[in-house]
Amino acid sequence: MTSVGVRVARGAALAAGALPLVLMGWRTWTGAYEPDPIAALADESGEWALRLLLATLAMRPLRRLMGWRWPLAVRRRLGLWAFVHASLHLGVYLGLDQYGIWAEIPRDIAERPFVAVGLAAWLLLVPLAVTSTRGWMRRLGRRWQALHRLVYLVAALGLLHQWWIVAPKADLTRPLAYLAIFVLLMALRLPSPARAGRGPGRLPERAG
């Protein structure tokens, strides 16, 4: 029986993943991204990928701190949405930003370390997205968890990717905010003496 909390959370996860896509489509359509829609689309899709990735990472601490069941029920969905946005971001870069100068892409990647870092982050997300189904969870068993710890590395690379393109040319408020959230989410994962005995984080985590 699916609880109300889980059902609401699934709706929220769908909204969090799909509404930005609708918004980006709408803004492109209405010309709100003019006169440089390519740069605007690349920026927004990349930023949504990061936000959704951080949301994914927030689910386990939420479960631990609040004892709710729903965070782990939507974690994989959020992760998949992050992958969708990251893929859109990469697609905009490959298909629009580099349109017509595709032969230059390898050199671009080699010359611009932040491109390489972003690409690495996306490549590492691919196996996670592929193995996000129940079937793969079953097949991989304990190894599934180990594999999906890659998400920490992906988030770190994603943040570095953003930091590298922004700093120091512009305003660092948002990259710093994302970094702070990431550090907080990592800190919440550290075992604390208060939690050591209870360990609710070890409860079944496969729901959803």
Binding site: P35, D36, I38, L96, D97, Q98, Y99, G100, I101, E104, R107, D108, E111, R112, P113, F114, W164, I165
Partner: peptide, 19 residues
């Protein structure tokens, strides 16, 4: 002379797709 974070070999003219 590339910028340390990106190449300067191409540019996108605002209003055009192909660099």
């Amino acid at each position: 002379v590339p910028h340390p974070r990106w190449s300067q070999r191409y540019e996108r003219r605002i209003g055009e797709l192909r660099r």
